[in-house]
Design a protein around this nucleic acid. Sequence first.
DNA 1: GCCATTTAATTCGCTGACGAACTATTCGTC
DNA 2: GACGAATAGTTCGTCAGCGAATTAAATGGC
Lengths: 177, 177
Amino acid sequence: MPDEVRQDAVDEDDWADRHVARWRDHWVDVPFEDDVEAIVVRIGRLMRHFRATTQLALAEVGLQDFEYETLHHLMVRDTPGHASPSALAADLGISGAGMTGRLDALEKAGWIQRRASVDDRRRVDIELTKAGAEIWRRAIQLRGKAEHEVVHALDPDERATLAGLLRKMTLVVEQGS
Amino acid sequence: MPDEVRQDAVDEDDWADRHVARWRDHWVDVPFEDDVEAIVVRIGRLMRHFRATTQLALAEVGLQDFEYETLHHLMVRDTPGHASPSALAADLGISGAGMTGRLDALEKAGWIQRRASVDDRRRVDIELTKAGAEIWRRAIQLRGKAEHEVVHALDPDERATLAGLLRKMTLVVEQGS
DNA sequence: GCCATTTAATTCGCTGACGAACTATTCGTC
DNA sequence: GACGAATAGTTCGTCAGCGAATTAAATGGC
């Protein structure tokens, strides 16, 4: 087997492989499934990469991480561009206090607007402004590029397979509630 | 097709599927590859779940998230139980200042010890204590259970396939440096 | 119809992390 | 072998997020 042609065929080790090997050498006594560990570690590393590239993209359009994340969740829900603070906080997985802080920042920047509800005056409706929608759109396009680059390491068939396998796991996560 | 038997065969939609469908309905004008988006979103959701369950596990052994993460990286490197603050900070992807803060907390708790290097007196060696190793071991066992549960939604063949597909992507990430 | 309970959002004090400035030590070169 | 640049770690001021307490409004008994 010639050495220069193996490129794609063999696929050298990644960080996770080295991690698992290291672990097995040093920590034999800790119970440990290497295939599970390798998968979880890879997911973690990919996520870390996505976070990092997202942040680069955001810096380019002049948006902080938490601002983008909030705008994004606001757009992506079933009532795009509208939500109550508490519902949005639940989506984002942050506390109510944190939500108030984010909304303060976003409102000051002009990306969203708080609007008092008329029928229930405890409630507040968050509304994305035009400027907010615009900057979100620019951010998401940049972000998409980085994701495309990584995921297109796989061909369409492989992507479909991966998506299916991941779905099996997310379903477990979502049903175990 | 009887309704109770379809269980595994059909595999209902997960959050990512609904997300993609919603997106296509509402935001046709935003350029968008659904297979990429679904994969990235699922990875994000899995990661989120792992983080949440890890935190539950840590609460049980009485360790904070950042404490565990630091101990873990300290154990998992090629010199297990030993590192310099800056090397560890790089592994963890946090700042030097943040590292100092974490080490202060860990040292006060008795999980690690700072040890001044003799040959280069700028350097500090971080050393895991016995107590630190012990609590890390307990934490990692609990954490492993939650990961096992999710990943074992797949059979061994599927796990191998998944690991391979993920590796293709992590390699892109790691090489693009 | 009034009072206790629940619900929505905000304020407050604290904490972990960051970037920038700082201190101490070593390296490099002249 | 001395002085400027580089390197390791810490200190300092700031910020986002959290949990707990707070304010305000709606709901549910009786």
